[in-house]
Amino acid sequence: MNDAESRSTRPSVQGAAALTKGLTLLQCIPELGQEASARNIQQRLGLPRPTVYRLLNTLEQEGFIEKNPLGGEYVLGREILRLAQQTMAKSSLQERVRNTLKAIGKATGETVHLGVPFGCHMTFVDKVESPEAVRMASYIGMPVPMHSTSVGKAYLAALDDSAREQYLSQLKLEAVTPQTYTSLEALREELKRTQERGYAIDDEENEHGIICFGLAVHAADGTVAGAISVSVPRYRLPDEGEAQIVGSIQELCREAGLTM
């Protein structure tokens, strides 16, 4: 091989080596579980510290990993979930909830989402489209803020005080619309109202003209696993619409054993 050929192949070799290290790191994270800190990952892989931090930073930027706001360890991110969705993987929660999503969609005639926490946001992992002409521009794998969505507020309100405060301490309360809660005091009050009424409301806080109603759902072991929401264009919501939609969500989730 001459010098020119050697130079032309060098980047691909280096790229392959970096890819191999990145994939090994991804495999390492679920193996370590709650011990998947940067230091423990470095020790497990035996790589130089700058290399590990560079890989972690790149993978986090691309959405393949995220930091768990509760424990600080790294977890697999939303991009992994999106890729899994495009193939065949279905989580146990999705399998338990799928028929309920369909039933809620049929009962309300509106778009239904299942959201689960990934890092400091929620991610839609399943969706039932409304048969109406005007539909939501959401998609499976889409990340949405916790503080401005009904799935996020329903999830936060259902957590115990300690877990909820750990999330709140790390959320970026950015204004998505003029109606978004952007202070911790206001958000805490809204979460308190959510607990009292038993469901969350996103009143055009995440998207203009859209109101959403959310209810936390539990995994088979009883832990809070995510939330279901129904999204409705405000012009399509009748006077008794909120009570009817929320009643359908609560009844169908209760029948499916998804609520405590």
Rank of each mutant, 00 (worst) to 15 (best):
L187S: 09
L187Y: 08
R188K: 15
R188H: 11
R188G: 00
R188S: 10
R188T: 07
E189W: 03
E189M: 07
E190F: 02
E190A: 14
L191Y: 07
L191H: 04
L191G: 12
L191P: 07
K192Y: 07
R193V: 04
R193I: 05
R193E: 12
T194K: 13
T194A: 12
Q195G: 10
Q195K: 11
Q195C: 08
Q195M: 08
E196D: 14
E196K: 13
E196S: 14
E196H: 12
E196C: 13
R197E: 11
R197V: 11
R197Y: 05
R197Q: 14
R197T: 11
G198P: 08
G198I: 13
A200D: 06
A200Q: 05
I201L: 07
I201Q: 07
I201N: 04
I201Y: 03
D202Y: 07
D203F: 04
D203H: 10
E204R: 06
E204D: 10
E204M: 11
E204A: 12
E205Q: 15
E205L: 11
N206L: 02
N206S: 12
N206I: 04
E207F: 05
H208D: 13
H208N: 14
H208K: 08
G209L: 01
I210M: 01
I210L: 02
I210S: 05
I211H: 10
I211T: 08
I211P: 08
I211M: 11
I211W: 07
I211A: 10
C212P: 02
F213T: 13
F213Y: 08
F213M: 06
F213Q: 01
F213C: 03
G214L: 09
G214H: 04
G214R: 06
G214S: 11
G214T: 02
A216P: 08
V217P: 04
V217Y: 02
H218G: 06
A219N: 11
A219I: 03
A219R: 02
A219D: 13
A220K: 06
A220W: 03
A220M: 10
A220N: 07
G222F: 06
T223I: 07
T223Y: 05
T223H: 02
V224Q: 10
A225G: 03
A225K: 01
G226R: 10
A227Q: 00
A227N: 00
I228R: 02
S229R: 01
S229E: 11
S229K: 01
S229Y: 03
V230M: 05
V230W: 06
V230C: 04
S231M: 01
P233H: 14
R234K: 13
R234D: 08
R234I: 14
Y235V: 15
R236H: 13
R236P: 12
R236G: 13
R236Y: 05
L237Q: 09
L237E: 12
P238L: 10
D239F: 15
D239R: 15
G241Y: 15
G241P: 15
G241A: 14
